[in-house]
Design a protein around this nucleic acid. Sequence first.
DNA 1: CCTTTTTAGGGAATCGATTCCACATGAGGG
DNA 2: CCCTCATGTGGAATCGATTCCCTAAAAAGG
Lengths: 369, 369
Amino acid sequence: MVKFSKSTTIIHTVDVIFYKQRGFHAIIWFENERFVRRRGLGMITIKDIAEMANVSRSTVSRVLNNSGYVSEDARKRVEQVIKDTGYVPSTNAKALRTKKSKVIGVILPTIQTETPSRIVTGLGRELSKHGYQILLANTDHQKEKEMEYLQVLKIHQVDGIVLLATNTDKKLIEAIKKLNIPVVVVGQEVEGLLCVTYDDYQSARELTKYFIDKGHRKIAFIGVDESDRAVGYERKRGYLDEMAANGLSVEQSWVQKGVFNIHSGYEAMQKILETNNKPTATLAVTDRLAIGAMSYLREVGFNIPTDMAISGIGNSEMSQHLNPPLTTIDYENEKAGEEVAKQLLASMDSQQVAKKIVMDYRLIIRESV
Amino acid sequence: MVKFSKSTTIIHTVDVIFYKQRGFHAIIWFENERFVRRRGLGMITIKDIAEMANVSRSTVSRVLNNSGYVSEDARKRVEQVIKDTGYVPSTNAKALRTKKSKVIGVILPTIQTETPSRIVTGLGRELSKHGYQILLANTDHQKEKEMEYLQVLKIHQVDGIVLLATNTDKKLIEAIKKLNIPVVVVGQEVEGLLCVTYDDYQSARELTKYFIDKGHRKIAFIGVDESDRAVGYERKRGYLDEMAANGLSVEQSWVQKGVFNIHSGYEAMQKILETNNKPTATLAVTDRLAIGAMSYLREVGFNIPTDMAISGIGNSEMSQHLNPPLTTIDYENEKAGEEVAKQLLASMDSQQVAKKIVMDYRLIIRESV
DNA sequence: CCTTTTTAGGGAATCGATTCCACATGAGGG
DNA sequence: CCCTCATGTGGAATCGATTCCCTAAAAAGG
């Protein structure tokens, strides 16, 4: 309990106490075994703690940061007052002085798809263990907002930035480097920056190999624009390389391009089936594209996997509930998010240079192939 | 362009300039038509701007905040320097002084489901229009973290809090009220707080009525635990009331309870079909439950909607791609998020009291009923 | 032409922490 | 007994803004 000096005047024994000492006074009340300063009187500051514990602000700060010399006696008193009042130091004042905000900025194109939301979940889980918070900068797919948010994050003095980018714009990267704030880029490789990426090439290749092992020779591919290096370019390269490595040819009409939604997969499959030389399997670079493709296949009476085998990538929640359940690649995004946090924290206190982390993946075999 | 005084010494004409005036000096360089202070020299402050524009910090502040008297001449100079340097005031210093951080805290149980991620998207969209950022506090379904995050948000001096709660704990509500920070609760009604809710009762009722209008008399219901007032209790009440209003009886086995995932809907439907008095329609309180239920129906060879009609609630992205496309309720979560932002901003500058906003909903008729 | 009022802008305090520096003890070494 | 050194603590400057207060000049009014 707080020890009151002689000058403390108790007005109401149970719940309201007028506390006066060394010029400081405030109305505090008793509740849940702790003293709380009355709302509206402004927040409780280090000065108040110092006065209540009969020490200087310096000493309170030393206790708070566990630095410098503090006698056992003073420490005890300060800690007791802090406990009694529920005091927590203002992060703004702290940030102003130390230039460390305990906030990490996250720039992402959307949180409405599973990959980013899983990554952010993992990221937040790990960051919160170390007392960091996430400042969200959702560009909502508007590229011009990326730059804007970069500025916003800077002025909020974030200690680090996580960039979930799809298309890594040169200008943006330059701007990021100039900020001189530790950054981790997730999902895309960027020269000169710390990146946590997925093995898009290998996973697509392994998936293709799985089709081949299952006896398929004519394998189609539903991709996305190659300006997305990871999803568009690397996955396609994995597919093409594995086909070539097995001496399998690829008809032009088998390789279709969509965007990131279900309907796009539907249309792509429609185009794939327009050929006379029909493939027996299709690799879609996202589960949503695969779902759309399956939807079309069902519509035209194709049986999956006998008439057409299909796989996605991403292990969406829905994938296991499809009919048939979808074979796909699990990138363990939450784990990746945690890894991103670890890397970022590490690079924050050790001026670590650029480094590439490639995450593992798992082939999830279900009944669609 | 910055005007240099006589004492400015140009060392390198093109890219490095040594700028000295009234005691201030720094190395700046020319790039993209603007002067940038060298990295590592620390951030550029209002003091620098003041010195470059030959005015006092007070004047710069007045320009920045568009307050007090500033001559046209001085304003022009300051604005030019700000533009040239790309200066933006530190939000921490500002927050420390003004107690306004331009940050809104959002506490949510997860961002991995569509409802919260859509709400946050809408919220962020509207907030960013007014220069606010979102500080994310994802409890990851751990109730004990709610309180913890409340403290975190407080010490970060957030200007407002948005609570996306499923179960509104008394203690949490009390703690929120005590913080004395404007709050908006989304999706659940809480006494004494500003709430933006959905019309769970009416929408469930209308959906039930739709089944009845379609000729169904024996209608089953897949709900969730009633501790979730909105989804568990209100939607169930809407269903029961509409059934009663039409003189339709409800068999106990028709009313099942699940949790918020797909598999749970599968199991619920399994239980529903164990009865001899089989219903001809089922209302599931979320799309995911409906998807699971459909999955079971397909497995046991039921045709939808002829053998069993089914509907969900929530208008998930997947719902329109199901076979058959799912009849559901659209709550327009993004719009709700925007409304939340508007309400919060309004309550922030007008000490508005508690108020209930009930959002509209749309019945989305597809082929599953 | 003198007084009021408006306009302009600088100085200094302030917000809530951290941190450097100076000073005061007390213990130990010679 | 004096000197050094480890320990403990307070004072004051600082971080980067805002804002109150005060002074000065210009404009308006009589």
